[in-house]
């Protein structure tokens, strides 16, 4: 077993763009579910429209990257309005089904050959973020080492900006949730009718929440798209939504830092597990008859499923959560 490699990849994973992707997705879900109680099971869809809005604008329409980012955010707002219009008037579990279906529609349309000329089909869209890396204060191609961390100049730049976005969203969440606006949201989570009876337009607040959290998800998609210089439809499978939920629950919902902490731990564990299993398989600790190299790639998803269930059952309040104040009653 190459322990050095294992540790390096685990430590490095703390800051990589994939972690940022899931953290932002989870921050959005924190607004949706953590504070407002909206069961959005289609966060992957919001992340997808962010990423594709950017990529399609640049690649297909030839607009600048910065316009593309605005387009990605705009699409997320549009998607929230489109879904919220029917679904926010309905019972909570209907929203869950509508959002999960919408996210799948987006993925299927993006990967369909009928939209290939726009969305690139199965292989997605690549190399559209040059403008971003032109601004890089580090040297794009150089490798930088800091103790156990090792990143390329490109990685450093997207990580710096990506974590900047995460901090900004955390600040936004903090400011909003200490305000009377946040109080209305938390009250809606507890009991919609009570809030209605006090003269608040619950529907409008839910819509604002859906838009805000959706935009956060879209920013996650945008960061990953720029970081990878690529978008692929299957990045945005339903599984992605649930990795975000796993992160949110682990960190603690309705807490400003819950999704950030949870996102880091959840994704690092998810990725670290994969590295460890592959190392074990390479070192023949697990015999080939029990686990082939194809199978070893599957194991982490088995753990992902198990971890989601166990978390929900045994520690629904997560690390930072207070069961008295907010329990998911898992």
């Amino acid at each position: 077993m190459n322990w050095n490699l294992i540790f390096t990849s685990i430590f490095s994973a703390i800051f990589i763009k994939e972690t940022i992707f899931y953290v932002l997705g989870a921050q959005g879900l924190n607004i949706h579910y953590g504070y407002t109680g909206l069961m959005n099971f289609g966060q992957a869809g919001f992340m997808a429209v962010g990423a594709y809005g950017l990529a399609v604008s640049v690649e297909t329409f030839g607009w600048s990257l910065w316009v593309g980012i605005l387009v990605g955010i705009g699409w997320a707002i549009l998607l929230a309005l489109l879904l919220g219009l029917p679904a926010l008037r309905l019972r909570g579990d209907y929203l869950a089904i509508v959002t999960i279906a919408a996210a799948e529609i987006i993925r299927l349309v993006a990967r369909s050959e009928s939209t290939e000329s726009v969305a690139g089909g199965n292989s997605g869209i690549n190399n559209f973020a040059g403008a971003f890396y032109d601004l890089n204060p580090w040297v794009n191609t150089r490798r930088y080492d800091f103790g156990p961390f090792s990143y390329s100049g490109q990685d450093l730049w997207i990580q710096a900006v990506g974590w900047g976005v995460v901090l900004l969203m955390a600040l936004l969440t903090f400011l909003l949730m200490r305000s009377p606006w946040g109080r209305v949201l938390r009250s809606i989570r507890e009991n919609e009718d009570a809030v209605r009876s006090l003269g608040k337009n619950v529907y409008a607040y839910k819509m604002q929440s859906l838009v805000l959290g959706g935009v956060m998800g879209a920013l996650g998609g945008i960061v990953l798209a720029i970081g990878n210089q690529s978008v692929q439809p299957d990045t945005f499978a339903t599984r992605t939504t649930f990795i975000c939920y796993g992160a949110l629950i682990l960190g603690g919902a309705a807490r400003v830092w819950g999704p950030v902490l949870g996102g880091i731990i959840f994704y690092v564990a998810f990725r670290g597990l994969d590295v460890i299993i592959r190392q074990m398989e390479k070192a023949d600790i697990v015999p080939e008859s029990i686990m082939t190299s194809t199978q070893s790639g599957v194991v982490r998803f088995v753990f992902l499923g198990g971890a989601l269930m166990l978390l929900m059952v045994f520690r629904p309040q997560g690390i930072l959560g207070d069961r008295k104040e907010l329990a998911f009653d898992g």
Partner: peptide, 26 residues
């Protein structure tokens, strides 16, 4: 019987789905 919320049950069912699906794949 523990009084799990709808959301809790949904997340558990999705976890179960991922778990089972990848066991099948394995």
């Amino acid at each position: 019987q523990r009084g799990s919320s709808l959301f809790g049950l949904m997340v558990v069912s999705f976890g179960l789905s991922i778990l089972a699906q990848h066991l099948f794949l394995y």
